[in-house]
Write a protein that binds this DNA or RNA. Structure first.
Length: 510
RNA sequence: GGCCCGUUGGUCAAGGGGUCUAAGACACCGGCCUUUCACGCCGGUAACGGGGGUUCGAAUCCCCCACGGGUCGCCA
């Protein structure tokens, strides 16, 4: 893979074609449009850019492509930044942190684009177009109907100066279109796809400057990528078909074309582009549901990139070490929630308990299982609970499911079958004996609990399930859960006795 | 519809002419551990889209077809 090298200058000058320096610095960018929360696909693009940059000790730039004023918002920008930070993707240059190539919001760079538009206009490589949006839309529809390629037909291509003035006197505000050369074949050497070719005849003259003077995406990216001296463009496959337009622009402006790499899309379970109907799509949602950032990062990295060995668990640091565009897959990947859950569960099992407790608190509060303020004792209790249920969790959201039984006053039977376990023949004896052995103790550790259980089994001459299952149900209402002796130890004598007593009442009632 | 990209088990994927009677992971199934569940450990089922070439030999190279996806905006 060739790593382009650029001269770094501090003025806002784009390097002319062929202008190199020996110094090798990788400069990549993540350039989202702040029109919504950071999407899983965007997060993966950002991650790949980050890994690539850090692997080569390069620079990651965060730039906001906010030229769509209708849909852009500061709120979305905030969400994107927060999500990136949460994932551990730190940018070296750009929004908030600054840098020598700013500003990093396109709407703050308007005057920079003007110069380049002028340049094209002067050279006749771009022209003014006065067609109304409505006309063009209708025309597009007509062409679609007739199964023709829906593209601009070039009506204003050869307007004279006089004609332009006349139209402007009528009050028409022009857009600027780029004159696409005819009959050329453009070649791009994509770092993940290899050689890809396009014919310019398939591209209509496209708009580079809107009637309100704001540049469109294709134009702004080219100018910015050049001015910011981006060496590698790593982005989603949906941009592959924009590449020829950008190539043309780089060429017309006399700017050096960065290397490009298009990574495949992330699909939903039905193999169509991932969208809301496939479930959660934003990073923020996964965060909220109790996925750990390192798990999401690990999972996203594996979605489209394959490590060399057989290991699949990687920290961010290890990903940086091992990442390579050579091992990025060309084919789209289905987002497999099951695997994410597995990876997340893995990290949950490895996490320090304090961290898990902190993450569990909001979920339990929301479910009304714990209060706003926790006393030291409550916190202590919660810690023990988390400790014994953590192995069941695939995300922290599930804590409510497994921890519920430890926080409610009276037990709830899971189902009739569970209740039925209490109605068996010698259950009263078991419960009574248990109560007698536990009552009055300040606390019981799990070893003691274990031997108490053994004693009961021995003294009543009852084996196996006859002791364990009724007690489990009496204490939790559930047929499954953490090991009985641990459960008893966590619950503590007082709570255990109270629950057993309640259970006995139930038994008597039948 | 045009253009572009893709196609190895249910999913992510390794592989890049012979070592492929095709790796690994998730999921699934079975067993062990455990008088429950989970975790953990062990094992199993399961794949080169189809057709033509090239070659002594093709999952790997070429062509065609099929299917999937992307894109054709004063969105990015």
């Amino acid at each position: 893979m060739s790593l382009g090298s650029y001269k770094i200058n501090l003025k806002n000058e784009a390097p002319e074609e062929g202008e190199f320096l020996m110094k090798k610095e990788i400069r990549v960018r993540f350039a989202p449009s702040p029109t919504g929360p950071l999407h899983i696909g965007g997060a993966r693009s950002a991650l790949f850019n980050y890994l690539f940059a850090k692997h080569f000790n390069g620079t990651l730039i965060l730039r906001m492509e906010d030229t769509d004023q209708e849909r852009s918002s500061r709120e979305a920008e905030e969400n994107i930044k927060q999500s990136l930070k949460w994932l551990g993707i730190e940018w070296d240059e750009g929004i908030d942190v600054g840098g020598d190539f700013g500003p990093y919001r396109q709407m703050e760079r308007l005057n920079l684009y003007r110069k380049y538009v002028e340049r094209l206009l002067e050279k006749g490589k771009a022209y003014k177009c006065y067609c109304s949006e409505e006309d063009l839309k209708a025309e597009r529809e007509r062409m679609k109907q007739r199964n023709e390629m829906p593209r601009y037909t070039g009506r204003c291509r050869d307007l004279t100066e006089e004609q332009c003035l006349a139209l402007e006197r009528e009050g028409k505000r022009p857009v600027i279109r780029f004159r696409v050369p005819e009959g050329r074949i453009l070649t791009v050497n994509d770092l993940v796809r290899g050689k890809v070719q396009f014919e310019t005849d398939g591209i209509g003259d496209f708009i580079i400057l809107r009637s309100d003077g704001i540049p469109t995406y294709n134009f702004a990216v080219v100018v910015d990528d050049a001015l910011m001296q981006i060496t590698h463009i790593i982005r989603g496959e949906e941009h592959l078909s924009n590449t020829p337009r950008q190539l043309l622009l780089f060429e017309a402006l006399g700017l050096k074309v960065p290397e490009v790499a298009h990574i495949s899309l992330i699909l939903g379970k039905d193999r169509s582009k991932m969208s809301k109907r496939h479930g959660s799509t934003s990073v923020a949602e996964y965060r909220k549901r109790g996925y750990l950032p390192e798990a999401l990062v690990n999972f996203l990295a594996l979605l489209g990139w394959a490590p060399e060995g057989e290991e699949e668990i990687f920290s961010l640091e290890e990903l940086i070490q091992n990442f390579s565009l050579n091992r990025v897959s060309k084919s789209p990947a289905v987002f497999d929630l099951e695997k994410l859950k597995w990876i997340n569960g893995y990290y949950i099992r490895k996490s320090p308990i304090e961290r898990l407790v902190a993450l569990a608190v909001p979920h339990l509060q929301q479910a009304g299982l714990i209060g706003e303020e926790l006393s030291a004792a409550e916190r202590d209790y919660l810690t023990k609970v988390v400790e014994i249920v953590r192995s069941n969790l695939s995300c922290m959201e599930e804590i409510n499911l497994y921890a519920r039984q430890f926080f409610i006053d009276s037990i709830e039977f899971e189902d009739e079958k569970a209740k039925g376990l209490l109605m068996q023949e010698r259950v009263p004896e078991v419960l009574e004996l248990f109560q007698r052995k536990v009552e009055g103790a300040d606390e019981i550790n799990s070893r003691e609990a274990k031997s108490i259980l053994k004693e009961i089994s021995k003294e009543l001459n009852l084996g196996g399930k006859k002791v364990f299952m009724p007690l489990r149900v009496a204490l939790t209402g559930q047929k499954h859960g953490p090991e009985l002796h641990e459960l008893i130890s966590v619950l503590g004598p007082a709570r255990a006795v109270q629950r057993v007593r309640n259970a006995m009442k139930q038994v008597r009632k039948g």
